[in-house]
Amino acid sequence: MADGHNHQADIDAYAQMQSPIHQWDTRWKIVGLLGLIAAFAMVQDWRFMPLLILITCLIYAASGMPWHALRHRLIIPGYVVAAIVIFLPFISGQTVLATLGPIIIFQEGIALSLLIAVRLFCIVTLAFVMFGTDTFVRTILALRALRLPDIMADMVLLTYRYLYEIGAFFAQMRLAARLRGFQGSVFSRQNINILASLVGHLFIRSYEKSERVYKAMVLRGYGSGGVRREIFHSGAADYVKTAVALLLAISLILMDQLL
């Protein structure tokens, strides 16, 4: 963002494709997939891992999105989880699986590591299906239709709208500073001071911008009531897809509890 590049196209990259998932009404899709995600995040029994992976891969395949796109979504959370999970086989559990000299490897630790890794993979993948098969704006409008408070939806959309401009403005400021000899990668008290001034200036300009945008909104009647455009239409296919997803989710939770 601070480099001024427009990253917003990324999530919308595959939004215009055709697939049974793309055609699923956004609101119902979110309900169904969130239900599945919640179920996945509740599963504690590691024996269900293959099932979770299977369901996830089937849904991703149904979406028609390319598999290489998934890689980008998995990298960063993957690293964070790996850093946390790497210790578990050595510290968590009672049943000893193996010993390497003084180091003990616990069975439960390994199972837990695998479970966490699988849960991460499945949740991130399903989330990508949920958000990647619609434009960002449609997703937020669907959330609003699902009772996300208007004020939150409006804020999210406005932030999204101006994120690029504000990022570009900061990139320009930094370039101007660099052209006058500022070396932002060197640590010094003076440099932190300069960066504080740059960021302070960014905040002031953003605040002033908000006042202008507010005037523009009020001038065209913001807050005077009025109706919003109805853009979502659902049919039988949507209800069926969501019902299947939710049934799957509930079954998973029950099976996990009972077995």
Binding site: L157, R161, Y162, K209, A216, M217, G221, V227
Partner: peptide, 23 residues
């Protein structure tokens, strides 16, 4: 500062919608 809606269509429709006009 004036184009604050997610799409061109939505932005141009902003005023008329707030005027309470029919779809």
């Amino acid at each position: 500062d004036q184009l604050f809606s997610p799409s061109v269509w939505d932005d141009v429709a902003f005023g008329p919608l707030n005027m309470g006009l029919s779809a």
